[in-house]
Structure formats: structure tokens, C-alpha cells
Design a protein around this nucleic acid. Structure first.
Lengths: 286, 286
DNA sequence: CTAATAGTGTCTGTTAGACACTATCTA
DNA sequence: TAGATAGTGTCTAACAGACACTATTAG
């Protein structure tokens, strides 16, 4: 029998069922999106933050975000947020990071937040502005460096830095194994000049880990350079995401099969001119 | 100044602000969780499905799931669902898979669903039962095999099979590159004996991909074998998740640093007895 | 005995990593 | 010319993959 002619226990077809269906009025959580917009500039990873205008976490720096409307998909909400803060609509890569659903994340009410990573080359960014709920917006240099390791735990230091505003936010990240999962204890460092709103330090740390993992086996690095780039630029992206220097010769051998040479000799500031390349999804087409 | 003494534009401290805060009554989406409970039995990957009692997708097979209560976290909701279907509370690994937020996923109303992968050894599973909204519950063998490849797309066939009930659900998965992302077109195969509810075929396909990726660089395989296992059992898990046979000698060399020998000679059914191992998180401690 | 799984050793081709050398451009 | 980046070649140690050999157990 056709699906739409089946009758349920009450004798209703699907059409009849949907016509009489009334969503229960159990209280529902609010759903929001957070956006982690990264770019790379001056050999450093940059993240866009906004400064909150109101309670809670008033005057704290936070990830841009907002509510998911009842008639827009989660991704549409992320696009909307992005447009509100940056005007960007093109050449931005999106990837869902994680959905945060703890009960008391927001002191106002129950909020479930779906965080997205966005990547774009810095050449693509024209101007950023603070949205309605923000009194400021700024790019922060993000760094995650290892502090120490031992049998019980690995410890890292997460730093967000904006030189113009003389801001330096610091977090201590302790990683422990709990069964098969890794658990992270993330706390404001006493030396920090302020704290991030909500659990946003968690999101940022998770994003850094994700990108570090993915850069080696997916082409995300190409989302952080212009369409045409030199291998030197590309290597810088890898180095920033991995947090270590790479050998130039070995790096070139490793990426050769992912790029296609498209031109020669365009300068990039000074020194010897470098050849230009494009990302080559098919690979092996030298 | 202390955070809790700051006053906002209206002159309110945080405490005062929260006391007077009233959530806006914009309509909110419902939030649900779906659980993809996998295990490995008889050299095959098994997934728990339930059969829906009511519209929409009445009598279709679906992932177990349910609403996230206003006072429970997303993970708590997954645990609750798991307990309702299986009684399991121990030795289950959880990992967030993806949050699905398209507008018309559910014909009744706007629903956002957070899908979780759960893994447990088959020895851990005692009995499964259908929950309230289900008329049946059953384990399906899941397989994803490559159909063809060409320049434009890769095509796979996703099969869910339950021999006792003589059920065989088939989907065709077409993978295309769209910019830097991969896009999947998932359609019911004409030869299929029914279809899955909602976008659950998407979830299942995504979970299979995730597990295939992760098995090589994380210890998830150990979540699918008992605490003590033979290397033969472990190899079967890798083979099922990767969808290919592995060389025994090479496999042993590769996992040696992740396991610790704990006993000798316990038989496992027939043939020569094998040594028993445990997962060794520290590694290199032979 | 045979069949099937368990356990190990070895050979080879590929590759990751270290390093050295040359080329080109600016200041 | 000095200094910096670009581009490439080579050596070696490590490793993945193929394969061969032996051991142990059930039937």
C-alpha cells in the first residue's frame, strides 16, 4: 500500500494525521549558532570576536552568533550571521564543529548552540563591523602551545591576542583520558586580561584541534589562501595550523599532487618571485 | 570592577538583569537526539533500528531517538534513549556525529536533530526492546560498497539487511565535489524493500564514513570488542569498518603498540587458542 | 590427516625527514 | 654584495605491503 494511504491506530491517513497534529507545548530550548571565522594573516591564525553589549558576560569578548529562526536552516543562520558581521558571501568554507547542549551554558535560559568553523583567505576580508548585540568587533591572534606533558595529562596554553587594543586572553587547557574519550578542563589563566563569554573557550580549543587534525588529510589549507598562491604562502598556512616549522623541500613534495601551476613570476612583496599555483582537486594531473 | 557589579545600559547589574529577563516568545524548533548504536557480530557491522508506530513514516524503520528535555543535556537524552531501548549503561562509547537542521526534515514541525554514534561490543548486548513510539526493534547488518567511480562522482550502495525478518533496504549514494566540500545525493534504490524514515539514511552514511576515517587514527575499534580480545577479533573489527581484508602479519605489527597481553590460551570457539590482549592507552609499554 | 586460525620473520618498494646545493630577486 | 626566499636533488632510516614459514587445535 502507498505510504500516504496507510491508516494509523486512530484510523487517520498521513495527510489527516498531519492536519490534526498539534505540537506539544513542552518547553523547548532555544537554538543558536556560533561562528568561528578564521583567517591567516602575517603568519598567524586570526579569529573574529565581538564584544558583548549586555548581560550576561557584559563587555566580554565572544564568538559572533545568534538565534536560528524557525524558518531557516542552521546553515542559513550561519550565513546570515556571517553577512551581518563581515559582508562576506563568497569564498568562505563552512564546517559544522560541534553542538553544545549542557543545561546551564547560558544563565538566561536553556540554549543549545551549534558551532561552525568558517575559513576564508585574509585577502577576502574587507571590513568587519559589530552587530546589534555587540559594542565592538576585532580580530584576535590565536595560539595553542604545549605547556607540559606527563603520564596523567597533557597541558596546553590557549592565547588570544589583539595588539591594537592591547588585549591578551589566556586559558589553560588540561587534557585527560577518561576511558576511550579525552576530557578537557579549560580554565582562565590568572595572567589573562579578561575572559571569554559562555563556553566559547571550549569551542575555540575544539576548532583548533579539528583544524590541526584535518589539515593533514583534507584540503582545508586551500580555504585559507587566495585562489592563486605561492607554495611559500601555502606552507605558512600548514605551519600555523600544525604549530611547527616544516621542511620546504619535503613540504613541496607532499603537496605537489594537490596543486596545479598556473603562472609564473608574480611577486609577493619582496625577494625572488615565486610561481603561482591553484588547488587541483583531481590530483596527479600535474 | 567585578563582573557581577557591572551595570548595563538600563542600569541593571547582572543579577537584576537575569531576574527581570524574559525569554522572547519567538517560535522555537524542537530538539531531538538520534542514536546510531553499532556493534559487530559474525564479522558484520550491526545497527539497531526501530519500526515506527505512527505517521509520519508509519511502519518505516528508523533510528531510535527522542526529544531533548528542557532540563537534561543532549548527552543525557542520548543515555536515556539508550537505556529505553537496550538497558545498556556500561561500556558504551558515545560520539556526537552531526546536527541536522534543515527546515522540512519532519513534516509535523520544525525539528533539529543531534545524531550520536554509540559503539559497544556485542557481548555487552543482552536484550533490545521497542520503545513507546515503536512497534518493533531489530538489528540490521550495514554495508557500504563502492558501485563505480568516475571523474564527476563516486557512487556507493548502502544496504541494511535483517535476515530473520527478510528485510533488505537499499540506498544509492552519489558523492560529488562542490568547491571544497563533498555533497551527497542519497536516494532509495528501486530494489529496496522499503525506506528509512526522515533523513536517517544520511545519518547512517555519515556515521559509516566517520568510523572508517577514525578507525585508522583513533582507538575506536577497541569500543567494539570486549575488554579482553584476541588479535583476530580486533582485526575483524578493522576489516569490517574499513571494508577490506588486511594482512595479518602487518596488522599485528601496526596494533602491537596499542595493546597489552593479559593472558594466554583462552579458546574462542575452535581451532588454535589465541592470546588475549587489552587496550593499552599509554602505548609503547609492551 | 586436513582445515583453519595463531604467531612470526623477511624482503622490497615507497616515503618521511634531514640536509645540501643552486637560482633569483631586493636593498 | 649580503640576505632572503624560491626551487630541486639526494641520502638514509623507517615503514607499509606482500609473502612465506611454523605452530596449535578441532574434527
Amino acid at each position: 500500500m502507498e505510504q500516504n494511504q496507510l491508516r494509523n491506530k486512530q484510523g487517520l491517513t498521513e495527510e489527516e494525521f498531519l492536519a490534526q497534529y498539534k505540537p506539544s507545548d513542552y518547553p523547548r530550548p532555544s537554538v543558536t549558532v556560533d561562528m568561528l571565522l578564521f583567517t591567516i594573516e602575517n603568519n598567524a591564525l586570526k579569529l573574529l570576536l565581538i564584544r558583548r553589549k549586555n548581560h550576561p558576560y557584559m563587555h566580554c569578548w565572544a564568538l559572533p552568533g545568534g538565534f536560528v529562526g524557525i524558518e531557516e536552516s542552521i546553515e542559513q543562520a550561519v550565513y546570515r550571521e556571517l553577512a551581518e558581521e563581515t559582508n562576506l558571501t563568497q569564498d568562505v568554507y563552512f564546517e559544522q564543529l560541534y553542538t553544545f547542549g549542557e543545561v546551564n551554558r547560558d544563565p538566561r535560559m536553556r540554549v543549545i548552540t551549534c558551532a561552525y568553523i568558517s575559513l576564508t583567505p585574509s585577502s577576502n576580508i574587507k571590513n568587519t563591523r559589530a552587530g546589534d548585540d555587540a559594542e565592538d568587533a576585532a580580530w584576535f591572534t590565536v595560539e595553542l602551545v604545549e605547556a607540559y606533558q606527563n603520564q596523567q595529562e597533557n597541558c596546553y596554553e590557549l592565547t588570544l591576542c589583539n595588539a591594537e587594543k592591547n588585549l591578551r586572553l589566556k586559558y589553560t587547557v588540561k587534557e585527560k583520558a577518561e576511558g576511550m574519550r579525552k576530557v578537557y578542563d579549560i580554565a582562565v589563566n590568572p595572567a589573562s586580561g579578561g575572559k571569554l563569554a559562555f563556553d566559547h573557550a571550549h569551542s575555540i580549543h575544539m576548532a583548533l584541534q579539528r583544524m590541526k587534525n584535518k589539515v593533514n588529510y583534507t584540503p582545508i589549507a586551500f580555504c585559507l589562501v587566495p585562489k592563486q598562491f605561492t607554495l611559500g604562502q601555502l606552507q605558512k598556512v600548514y605551519e600555523v595550523l600544525l604549530g611547527e616549522k616544516l621542511d620546504r623541500a619535503n613540504f613541496r613534495k607532499a603537496v605537489r599532487h594537490m596543486v596545479r601551476q598556473v603562472g609564473q613570476g608574480t611577486a609577493q612583496g619582496s625577494r625572488r618571485q615565486a610561481m603561482l599555483f591553484e588547488y587541483n582537486p583531481l590530483g596527479h594531473t600535474d
